[in-house]
Each structure stands twice: as C-alpha cells, then as structure tokens.
Nucleic acid binder design. Structure first.
Lengths: 214, 214
DNA sequence: TGCATATGACTGACCAGTCAGTTATATATA
DNA sequence: TATATATAACTGACTGGTCAGTCATATGCA
C-alpha cells in the first residue's frame, strides 16, 4: 500500500473530516435500532456500519441512550418546519393542497426508511415514555395541527362540508399509516406501489362518501 | 406460615392446578414484553408477575422465544374465529353489521391491553419477521378479508356505492388504528373515551363524504 | 415410595462502557 | 526542505455487571 502515492492524488488516505461522523453514526444507529430493536442492537454493530470502532462512538455520544435521543431529535427537526410551511402554503387552495400532500406522503411511504422512526418509537414507547411524548408533541401533534388548519380553511372556503375536524384528520392519516404498517412491518402485498392510484381511490371515498347516489 | 392450615379452609395451600399456569405466564409475559420490550424484559420479572420462580417457567416453556411464540398464538387464535363468524353473521344487513362492528372495536380499543399484541408485534417485527408474517396471515389478513366480504355484501345489496374495496377497508381500519396508537403508544388525549361519538363522526364522513351538498 | 411441582443458587455468554496506547495530520522550528 | 512536537481521531483489549438457562434439591400429594 505504501508505494509511491501515484494513484488518487487528491483523495486523502484518511477519508473524512470528523464533523461528518455523528450523522453517520445516527444513520447506522437508526438502521440497527429499527431492525434489531433498541436493546438488542449492539453498539459494535452500529460502529461497524458507520465504519468506526465501538470506542469511537463514545467520543461523540456519552451512552447508547444518548444516541437514541440524538437520533430522534435529528430526524424530527426537519418535520416541524415542513408542517408549519404546509399550512400557510396551502391557504389559497386548501383542498388541492391536501390532495397533493397526501400523494406526496403516499409516495414517500413506499420507502421503508420513512417509517423507520415511527416504528422505532412504537417499539420503545413502553420503556421510554418521554421519547414517545417528545415524538407526539414534536411530530404527530404538529402534523395533526397543520392538517386541521388546512381542513378548517377548506371548510371556510366551502370546498368541503362542515364536519368534525378531528374525524377528518383521522380519515386522512389513518389509512395511509395503516397501509404503511401493513407494508413495511408485516411485509404484506401493498397498494403503496401505486401511490397516485391509492390516493385517488382514497379521495374518491373520502370526498364523495359511500352512500349510493340518490 | 406453615401453621395449622386453620384459615381459608376451602382454599388449597398450593393454589392452582398446573394447567392454569401457562396462561398466567403468558399474561405476565405480555405485560412485561409490551412495557419493556422483548429483549429487555427479564424472565425473572415475568415469573414474579405470574407468581412463580424463573426456573418454574422453564417447566412449561423451553425458552424465552418459545414464550413469545406461544403468546402470539394464544392471543391470535380467538380472533380468527371471530372474523369468520363476523362475515356470515352480518350477511343480512352488512352496513349495520359494519357500524356495530366499528363501535364495538372502538369501545374495546380504549383498553390498552387490546392493542398490546399489535404493539408488541410492531416492536419485534424487525428481529423476528416470521412472527410478523404469522400475525399478518392469521390476524390482519383475516380481518381485512372479513371486512371485504361485508363490504362486498353491502355493495351487492345497494347499501353503498361501488368503489375500490381495499380503499374502503383502509378507510374503516386506518382511523381506528391510528387513534389507538395515538392514545396508547403516544399517550395523547383521545377521542376513544367516547367510542359511540367517534364512530358516528367517522361514519358521517365515510358515508356522506366531504363534498358540499349540491 | 414415586411423581409432579417447584425453587435458590449457580454458570457461561454477552455487551455497554473504559482506557492505555496508536496513527494521521497540523504546526513549529531550523 | 527535513525533522521535532503537539494534538485530534481513533482502536484493541479489557472489565464489571447482567441475565437466559441449568441443576441439585425440596416439598406436597397419590
């Protein structure tokens, strides 16, 4: 190896600046935590996946638990902003915004990595209720709030009927959440392959309802 | 303690027939597994909860994993029958059957023990995919199937419009599942306190849809 | 006595977290 | 430029505690 350094001149032998490491560790941890579970995941496996030794992880995080917390916070941060902008962006045509939002969400949910965090949270919620609470307040409650704002706007504009807003929120999120769990947790054959179609069908039911036309 | 057996004459000092033990162990295991997670739950705690020593558990089950498997199977068995009878029972008035079913389901879901198993399955699905698959085939797929039968019947009778059946199944299960997770996993304030009202609102949306009346 | 039911005390494996020591790079000095 | 020194980034090997599973022994009962 220590020849003349002829090849790959510009690439340093020691690959990365250290600042990049924590993120790599968190990515590796997410993968290990979701497949093996928090308790059963071995720090050494996380380290190997991140391309480090176990001891190196402890240069960046004081404990396994701290890795979990950092992981949740890191994955949650971006979502908060998204939810906030969502409500304002869709003010003009809220119903259209809802439709586009649902399609985008269905599309993203075909990627197993997207539900990795919710899945992890469900798994550890019994043991670490604070994390579950954190996730509720910083993710799900915000998403529900943003949806409610859009729904309220759609009602005010006369785009949809006035019904219980919470019921509508559940009717939006629930089916998608259920299908995601069916797909990625239970490995079932899925409708998420065709997100466009899935949402069309879902909106057909949701908007026109199931009553036979009078 | 080993006095004259004067008190509580009819109660045997050695409390129960052995056949009852496995069930008690499974109940204890379910409680421990759901709160601590499969890996973090200690066999000794399960034993203590069941009123036994750890070694006694190994008289009934060969391993921790075997306890988990027996647990899933025990909790799953009854559901299969329920699903089957459901479809036939509701043949006469399928829409009414769906409504009653949803109300009953919402009612039961206010009890955290009801979603304990699904929650557990989600937590361990990464590590034990066979169990997830078992659960899909023996519970969720059956439930979906039964619902589909009812929905098909309702369509044939003209009680509801003809739309994609899978979308309807999702629209029935999804919102309830989502609310159950929100309630018991994330400890959020819940609409499950008033299941009757919850289902009424849900059916109002589902049957009449959201489009403003023409 | 023999069988069923049970347990306390033990063991071997496993793993989070530590630490003394190593390697690569940056900087200082001549 | 070459060499010395300092420091940042990292690791192999270890430790102490934990826990699934075992076993020799005990107790109630036919």
């Amino acid at each position: 190896m220590n020849q003349f350094t002829v090849s790959k001149i510009s690439e340093p032998r020691w690959r990365r600046r250290a600042e990049a490491r924590p993120e790599e560790i968190l990515d590796a941890a997410l993968a290990e935590f979701t497949t093996r579970g928090f308790e059963a995941a071995r720090m050494e496996d996380i380290a190997k996946r991140a391309g480090l030794s176990k001891a190196a992880i402890y240069l960046y995080f004081p404990s396994k638990m701290a890795v979990l917390e950092a992981l949740i916070k890191a994955k949650v941060g971006p979502l908060a902003k998204q939810a906030q902008t969502l409500a304002t962006m869709g003010a003009e045509n809220p119903l259209l915004a809802l439709r586009m939002l649902a399609t985008a969400a269905a599309h993203r949910m075909s990627d197993p990595r997207v539900i990795a965090v919710p899945r992890l949270v469900i798994g550890i919620s019994g043991r670490f209720p604070e994390i579950a609470t954190y996730y509720r307040e910083h993710v799900v409650a915000l998403a529900r709030g943003a949806l409610e704002t859009l729904i309220e706007a759609a009602m005010t504009k006369g785009q949809i009927r006035r019904v219980d807003k919470n019921a509508v929120v559940r009717a939006f999120i629930g089916p998608l959440f259920f299908e995601a769990m069916w797909t990625h947790v239970l490995s079932g054959e899925t409708a998420l392959n065709e997100p466009q179609k899935l949402i069309e069908q879902q909106f057909d039911v949701l908007l026109s309802g199931l009553e036979p036309r009078a």
